[in-house]
Amino acid sequence: MYNTEEYEYEAILQRMLDRVPDDIDKRPGSIIYDSLAPAAAEFAQMYINLSAGDDLYNVDTATGEYLTEGAAEWGVNRKQATFAIRKATFLDSNGAGIDVAIGSRFFIEDLNYVVAERVSQGVYKVVSETAGVMGNAPFGSMLPVEYINDLATATLNDILVPGEDEETDDQLRERFFVEINEQPFGGNVADYRQMIRALDGVGAVRITPVWQGGGSVKATIMATGHVPPSAALIDQLQEQVDPVPFGGEGLGLAPIGHTVTLNGVNWVTININTTLTLGDTSVGQVQQDIEDVIDAYLLALRSTWEEDAPLVIRVAPLESRILTVSGVVDISETELNGSTANITLTVDQVPQRGTVTLNE
């Protein structure tokens, strides 16, 4: 607001000098000049501070705690980091499942997990003690913090509800403007989208109104990290939004009279076969780099699913990304799942990389 030339030091000082009669010496080094210069410098600094303060109290330019407070004034609260919920199996030396005490703690790769709920014999839900996406990463053998009788192996398996990092400034600002501009009300599409996006584990959602007649709504979910949700996450969200078998009774977040069905997106595996012209390198040397750029392309597509579904996997942009890999001179005859045509998915599908076959 104040970052204009008229509020810079030289401009302020000149305006002050212009107010002094011309028959008084105003040259640099004069008494008047040397008296006004420090005041002009202070005024310039004041305007800089005012400008910075103005930025901190506008949501479009605020950062950190100022953005948090500014958005909260409109009812949009920053999402805090959440704790991953995982599945773990506990077996004895004969390979049979054993029960462990709720609250038992295990560690793997410097992360601790605490047993939270029994699913079946030897199968439990465990919760990461570290908030954020770190809790989603490790898989495999865990060790108990304290000795447990008859326990031979403890294995950390599926991600049931993914952990999320605290919402970044950019994410909060983007969500703020979406929520303010969409004007959710009384079970409209914007209301459902905001309601479900705010739930733990949800990365994106698409709402299908009047799905099976009046009062029916379908919500298709993508989990945090742009991946399909687990069955456990869908069950948890269903219980929060519209519990079964009490659909439409208003016992969850959904309005009375609305029957809401939640489901998740599904993976579609994309196998890629292409022919390369290489420089001074071999297929083996570029294989991993090419798989990485393919993964990045498919992730970019998945990140647009909420707005752009059904997604289209196109040969041309895939080839252009592969051409950026060092050592690749040219590319031709690219096939996706055995065809040279683009692949169009359904609204409920998202792509993941399958096999990548590189020919010379």
Results as ranks from 00 to 15, higher is better:
157 N>Y: 00
195 M>F: 05
162 P>N: 12
165 D>L: 04
168 T>M: 07
206 R>K: 15
187 G>F: 01
144 P>G: 07
139 F>G: 00
179 E>Y: 07
202 V>A: 06
151 L>P: 05
196 I>Y: 05
212 Q>W: 04
195 M>G: 04
197 R>L: 15
214 G>E: 06
164 E>G: 04
144 P>N: 08
225 G>E: 05
192 Y>P: 04
207 I>E: 08
173 R>T: 06
190 A>W: 01
224 T>H: 04
186 G>W: 03
142 M>W: 08
219 A>F: 11
225 G>Y: 03
153 T>G: 01
219 A>Y: 03
157 N>D: 14
183 Q>W: 08
191 D>T: 00
148 I>D: 00
210 V>N: 12
145 V>E: 15
172 L>T: 04
225 G>T: 04
209 P>I: 10
223 A>T: 02
172 L>P: 04
161 V>M: 05
150 D>R: 13
213 G>L: 03
152 A>G: 08
171 Q>E: 15
146 E>R: 11
167 E>W: 06
153 T>Y: 12
152 A>K: 09
189 V>Y: 13
180 I>Q: 13
150 D>N: 14
160 L>V: 09
187 G>R: 05
143 L>D: 14
189 V>L: 11
204 A>H: 05
143 L>V: 01
146 E>D: 13
198 A>P: 02
161 V>Y: 04
168 T>N: 10
202 V>C: 09
187 G>N: 04
169 D>W: 12
170 D>Q: 15
201 G>W: 05
196 I>A: 03
222 M>D: 10
